[in-house]
Nucleic acid binder design. Structure first.
Lengths: 201, 201
DNA sequence: ACCTCGCCGTGACACCTGTCATCGCACTAC
DNA sequence: GTAGTGCGATGACAGGTGTCACGGCGAGGT
């Protein structure tokens, strides 16, 4: 019997996944949480063996949650189950110590198998995504560029971003200009979207 | 026995919802599709009574699918089940003839009840969202403004948008300026995000 | 010690953008 | 027929934006 923890901020999806996995005779959902920062505690309390983690979650994202699990409970394996198959996500998930990465449009039949493989110590990674994340390479953005791009995501003017991070407008423009160059964009908001699509934010 | 059709582009979620609903003794999932433009055909073939529709789907979105169902198969009721509780979505869904609107972070226990109520001819609408969509009012955007905002979503420069719709740059700027005013934004990309958040696109 | 690289800043320049006034056309409502 | 509204366009202007050159600081690697 494999003991599972589910972490997803959408209660309906969480409950549905639980129903799906409980149909398998060798799987048992022993904990469910809706926030990333409750994962470690719940995993410890429930003695889960495998954690299914969504990426988009309040409190702590799934990748950082996987890193926290690696640190606090090294015996627990984690499997990222997410909507967005962004190349950068895969790389970061693996670096954070996740054992698997599955996107939510894989057939539901395959999920239980993925869990079993992860439980057996194998890696489960969507082959297309693995290839994409290899050709894509790691994020070329510096820390500041990454930060400023996240603030540029909603289309704020440069002045607003500068005020928010206590920098001069010129500096913000320079960093964003560098980011625009690295993403191949022509506008800061375009650059922000591209970076987000690749999982660089 | 209530006959259900599930429409969601994420296979994993679809399968999981099916598992969840099949646990109920009075419900039966008789069809599953991953595209909006397959809903009517599948509903007809499977003689479904209630259709659960996600909004974000390839081919045809869930709201337009509900409208198509209303037209082609008036006896079939539809229930929107979506990630985003955007006020504009609720209004448009009801106008399209949907019988219910549920967001994906409602507790999974309540889904079956929502289905039963819809099947009985009742309306099921998240009360918070209903209130929000009332105070928000309908979209103030004209058709052109809406169109241009969708093109502005990715941060494209005005020149690119103008070329795409075969308009002069000045005209595009004028429409976008109007949209910026109506959304209370200061930038076209900010306006685009705000409009999207409210379900105006 | 030297070099590299990330980070912060300034100043200047060309270009892009948002705003406003003004015009014309087509359609609808009263 | 008059008024209102959406749509398209032009021109002008102030201010925002992206780019470049340049300088300086500190941390890390050789």
């Amino acid at each position: 019997m494999i003991r599972l923890l589910l972490a997803d901020d959408q209660a309906l999806v969480r409950g549905a996944l639980a129903a799906l996995l409980d149909l398998e005779s060798d799987l048992e959902v022993v904990a469910q949480v809706g926030r990333g920062d409750e994962v470690v505690e719940a995993a410890r309390a429930s003695e889960a063996e495998v954690c299914l983690l969504d990426i988009e979650m309040p409190g702590l994202n799934g990748i950082d949650a996987a890193a926290a699990l690696r640190r606090e409970l090294p015996g627990v394996r984690s499997l990222i189950v997410t909507t967005f198959g962004r190349p950068g996500y895969v790389r970061r998930a693996i670096e954070a110590g996740a054992s698997g990465f599955v996107v939510k449009d894989t057939p539901s039949r395959q999920l239980a198998d993925a869990v079993r493989r992860v439980h057996n110590g194998l890696r489960v990674i969507d082959p297309d995504l693995a290839a994409e994340s290899l050709i894509d390479g790691p994020s070329p953005l510096t820390g500041r560029e990454r930060e400023l791009l996240t603030y540029a995501l909603d289309g704020s003017p440069v002045a607003a971003i500068a005020a928010r991070v206590h920098l001069s407008e010129g500096t913000v423009r320079n960093h964003l200009s560098a980011a625009i160059g690295k993403t191949g964009a022509t506008t800061r908001s375009e650059a922000a979207r591209i970076a987000q699509d690749r999982g660089w934010l």
